[in-house]
Amino acid sequence: MRVRPPAGLAVVGILGGAVLLVPFVALVAGVDLTRLPGLLSSPSALDALGLSLRTALTATAICLVIGTPLALVLTRLDFPGRSFARSLVLLPLVVPPVVGGIALTEAFGRRGLIGEHLQLLGIDIAFTSAAVVMAQVFVSLPFLVVALEGALLTRGEAHERTALSLGASPLRTFLTVTLPLLVPGLVAGLVLTFARALGEFGATITFAGSLQGTTRTLPLQVYLERETDPEAAVALSLVLVVVALVVITVAYGRRDRRRDDRQTGARA
């Protein structure tokens, strides 16, 4: 028998759910289904969708490669100022994305701290798809790191210690014990990272620009479409919502199932 929350709280809780859901319901209601295929198969929409998928996948892969070591450093390495460093990682999550875009411009723009030197090497990031990926990595990396930190902290180090006690090297322990045990947290984290990268707007428009096929991702296309064809904007928004929904259902559905399995397994 579950302990039920007080009735009043349940009502507020349902209202809270409505706050989250009503806009999406309205969005779906606003789509003219007969026009949908035409709107979604326009060259600009397809370009935007393709670019969004390519860049978001690349950004997610980069986050995986740099975010996993970062999460390990932040949870498994003792150094002064670690808790401060851990809160710093959250910074891109809480600053407005536009601010992120400005910061990226200051760093990697033509006259930026690093961009200035890249420029001399003939590397020009602004207005390229690489700039889009950088903006996406910048805003979505915290999602992965936070998810991994959570997984690392809840699981603790007991399994790794066991492996070391059995004579395994640190590298072997990492590859054969730490990483496999991280997989559930990693999947959930990667899904959020991908979804955030896919939805990135503010930093992209500030740092990367907006050109069809190169830097105009789906969110930028939606924003632009609003100017002339709001109905097309609503249709494209629906695509983003559906993609996000699929991604989240796959990841979280899977996780919940696993958790249920584990519980039944423990009872048996």
Partner: peptide, 21 residues
Amino acid sequence: SPVSEEASVTDVLGKVTSGEA
């Protein structure tokens, strides 16, 4: 043959003042 087609004139101006364009 622009490198970027911005959604607002403010964004165009921003790209120029920052020296990106």
